[in-house]
């Protein structure tokens, strides 16, 4: 039996930014990624570490189909993003990927359950069903009692748990977290990490976490170190 294709397969990818506008051919070029090859297998937990500015977030955006590589290929379950339109990438993000951000990125003045239900809106799920699914997802992260709370009425840890619920409500194959504990104290951070791992494992979701916290990184089944836009070492647990 053949192994299933990777959730996402990155081959020899570069990503560079031209500073000073697209038209200025002489503008300085920033090479954020300089030839990265990397794959995420179904259900695995990968952590990415590296100094600031090394290209971690840039890589995560490519893994999340939020961005396209300058050269090289990024493929989701065997589908190359080069052949997909922006609208198709949006659909792919909606169906297969969940994001957790350092700044939580919740809609202000919007109740927790509606924040969680937001990705379902773009799937055309009816309101009643959205509410049901969001309630379930919030229960799974231990926030059954906070359905109607707005972000400003929640603690940082609770806000990040709402964000986790939002990432999971669509039942993605890949969960991407960019420094999810960066804005939390150590104890709360560990709780959120534990939640991510537990939920990921329960649902068989592949989990990629960018972190500066060695303890968080060490918990992963695979650790990747990035420096100057290149992979500089990989450790399996």
């Amino acid at each position: 039996m053949r192994a299933p294709p990777p959730v996402v397969d990155v081959v020899d990818v570069t990503r560079s930014y031209r500073l000073g506008g697209d038209k200025d051919a002489d503008g300085a070029v920033v090479h954020a990624l300089r030839g990265v090859t990397f794959a995420v297998q179904p259900g695995e937990f990968v952590s990415i570490v590296g100094p600031s500015g090394s290209g971690k977030s840039t890589l995560l955006h490519l893994l999340g189909a939020l961005d396209r590589p300058s050269t090289g290929t990024v493929a989701f379950s065997g589908r190359d993003v080069e052949g997909l339109s922006d609208a198709e990438l949006a659909v792919l993000r909606n169906r297969e990927i969940g994001f957790v951000f350092q700044q939580f990125q919740l809609l202000a003045r919007t109740p927790a359950w509606q924040n969680v239900a937001l990705p379902l809106v773009y799937r055309g799920v009816a309101v009643r069903e959205r509410r049901r699914l969001a309630t379930e997802a919030l229960a799974a992260v231990g926030l059954s009692h906070r359905l109607g709370h707005r972000p400003a009425q929640l603690s940082g840890g609770e806000q990040q748990r709402v964000a986790v619920a939002r990432a999971l409500v669509t039942e993605p194959r890949l969960l991407l977290a960019d420094e999810p504990t960066g804005n939390l104290d150590t104890v709360t951070g560990s709780e959120v990490m534990a939640l991510l791992r537990q939920q990921g494992a329960e649902r068989g979701v592949a989990l990629v976490v960018i972190t500066h916290d060695p303890e968080v990184a060490a918990a992963a089944s695979r650790r990747i170190r990035i420096r100057d836009g290149c992979i500089h070492g990989e450790v399996a647990a």
Partner: peptide, 9 residues
Amino acid sequence: LRKALGART
């Protein structure tokens, strides 16, 4: 955020 969650242009 909406785009990240699947909103199209």
